[in-house]
C-alpha cells in the first residue's frame, strides 16, 4: 500500500509541476504581449529579464520534476550541475563579445 501512496503522490507532484509550468508560460506570454500592446515605446530590458527568470523557473521544474532529477542521488545532481559553470562562462564571454562587436561597428 505504501508503494501505491507513493505512486499517487508522484502523480500529484507531476500535475502540480505541469500547472506551475503552464501558469509561468501564460505569465511570460502576457508579459511579452503587454509590452507589445502597452509599452511599445519603452525599452524591453526589464521585461526580458523577468521572462528569462521565468524560463529558468520552467527549466527547473522540467529538470527537477519531469526528468526526476530532484529525487536522484546528490552526486548525480552535482555531476550534472557543475559543468554548467563552463556554460555560464561561455555565455558571458559570447555576449560580451557580441556587445564589443556592436560597439566596433557603431
Amino acid at each position: 500500500m505504501e508503494a501505491e501512496a507513493q505512486y499517487r503522490s508522484q502523480v500529484k507532484a507531476v500535475w502540480r509541476a505541469t500547472i506551475i509550468i503552464g501558469i509561468v508560460t501564460v505569465f511570460e506570454v502576457s508579459l511579452a504581449l503587454s509590452h507589445f500592446f502597452f509599452f511599445y515605446e519603452h525599452p524591453k530590458l526589464v521585461i526580458n529579464v523577468f521572462m528569462t527568470l521565468a524560463t529558468l523557473l520552467k527549466a527547473f521544474y522540467i529538470i527537477a520534476e519531469f526528468m526526476h532529477l530532484q529525487y536522484e542521488k546528490r552526486t548525480l545532481i552535482i555531476t550534472l550541475g557543475l559543468p554548467l559553470v563552463f556554460l555560464t562562462w561561455l555565455i558571458v564571454v559570447m555576449l560580451v563579445e557580441g556587445k564589443f562587436a556592436f560597439s566596433l561597428l557603431h
Binding site: 555565455i91 559570447m94 555576449l95 557580441g98 556587445k99 562587436a101 556592436f102 561597428l105
Partner: peptide
C-alpha cells in the same frame, strides 16, 4: 545570441 547582440 552573439549575432543578435551585435545587430543594430
Amino acid at each position: 545570441g552573439a549575432i543578435r547582440v551585435k545587430s543594430e
